[in-house]
Structures are given as C-alpha cells and as structure tokens.
Amino acid sequence: MNGRRIEVLALLAPALILTLVVFVLPLVRFLSLAFTAPEGTFATFVALAESPVYRRVMLNSFVVAAVVTAITAALAWPLAYLLARVRGLWFTLMIYGVLFPLWISILVRTYSWMLLLERHGPVNRAIQAMGISDTPLPLLFNHTGVLVGMVHVLLPYMVLPLYGAMRAIDPRLMQASDGLGAGLWQSFRRIWLPLTLPGLAGGATFVFLLSLGFYITPALLGGRTSIMLPTLIVAFITEHFNWPMAAAASIALLAAVAVLMLAATRFLKLDRGMFAR
C-alpha cells in the first residue's frame, strides 16, 4: 500500500513539479497583482465595476460567446448527423474536412479571413456581382468578422461531441419507435433529439468557454468595435502598463468561467439518465 503510494507519487512528480513551477506559481503571482494597486487592496475591482467600458466589453464577450455557440450548434448538428450515417470514403473525407482546420495555425486562418472579408475581397465582390448590395458591406473589424472567424475556428469542438453522441445511438431504437407507431417527426423529437442532447451540452460548454477566452481572432477581426475581454486584458498590459487592472480583469473572467462550469456540471447531473449508456 505504502510502496504503491510512493510509486504513484514518483510517476506524477515530474509533471506536477513542472506545472507548479512554470504555470501555477507565475499565475498566482500574476493574479495576486490585482490586490497591489496603490489606491487600496480592492481598488482595481471597484474601478472595473464602475467602468462603463469594462461593463460593455464584459457584456459583449458573453453575447458574442452565446451567439457563436448558437451558430456552431446550428451548423454542426446536421453535419454530425451526416458524419454518423456515412461510411467508407465519404466518412474519411468528411472527418478530415472537420479536423483539417485544427492542423492549421489559428493565425493563418484568421489572416485568411481578413483577406476574404476585406472591403474589396472576394466575398464582397461576389455579393456585389450577385446584386445583393451595390456598395461593399462592412464585414471586417466588427461583430460580423468576429463571428465568422470564431465560428470557423470553433466548429470542430461542437461537431465532434455531437458526432460521438449520435454514433452511440442504437439504430434499433429508431426502428423500435417506428414499429410502435411513431411518425418520423415524433421519433426525431422524442428519441433522436433527446439522446443527442448530452453531445450538444458538451459541445456547447466547450465552445462557450473557449469563446470567452478567445484572443487572436477577435483582436484581429473585431477591430475597435467588437472588443472581447482578453483583448481588454492585453490592452491593460501593453498599452497602459497597468498590471493590477489586467490581473483583476483576469480574475473576473476566471470567476465567470468557474461559475458557468459549475452550472454546466449541475445541469448535466440533473439529466444523468441521458448520459448513462
């Protein structure tokens, strides 16, 4: 028993020590800066709470994250459905199509979107050629740009859990539903949809939390009109050299994420029946 414990500890030690020294300690040091403002221990948090800019950015971050989650869910659902049904070559092609973007640097993908969405880029030219609009549409440096870029980057994180949930559904359940007299819509609504909800909940949690902490894509595609929390935190450090404010904003973001995670796990537990298989 004791020998085993030492063995486990010895195996864990290298990773634990590395994490502690290069990650946990610097993080604690950084976050503790929030309480070192010359105006007082909690002055930074007071300043954040009183700042209309900060409040707007916070609200914007949550709205963008929620919209991104909704759009990826709507796009990923039919895609995951197809993935779960096709076999052979089509499956290989589709799954690589889903995974391929993950292998390309996020920076490359974001700059690619800048080229596509710019004032005289291919997207605007196509819109004008089709007569949808006479003047180029503002697609970049606003919400539209941020949403397009983030949805593109985060889509696989929604597709994969949904696909997993759909693959786990026994096709005989749909036959059973059919044989019991239920129509297609009813079988979908009462059997298929509820059984995919665990995947949807998992994917949505992923996408929402990743969205809240997203930096590169909103910073490059959002410009000055769609600022997200991480962009603000970086601005505190690089433009204002105000480390205590950056730390306070980070703590606020961390707290929001923690609360959401707790709520999510609580929601998942409430519906445990859907997850057991």
């Binding site: 026994d170 005989r172 359940l173 036959q175 059973a176 539903s177 059919d178 044989g179 019991l180 007299g181 239920a182 129509g183 009462r190 059997i191 509820p194 059984l195 029946g273 859907m274 057991a276 298989r277």
Partner: peptide, 17 residues
C-alpha cells in the same frame, strides 16, 4: 408504423432516457 406489429428486439432497444 402502420402495421400494428409488436416487436421485441434481441438488444431490447428500450429507450434509455
């Protein structure tokens, strides 16, 4: 769904949720 046949599957295919 319109045949009015009762089916018992080998895997039972009970709705797990």
């Amino acid at each position: 769904r319109h045949r009015n046949i009762g089916m018992v599957f080998q895997s039972y295919a009970l709705f797990p949720h």
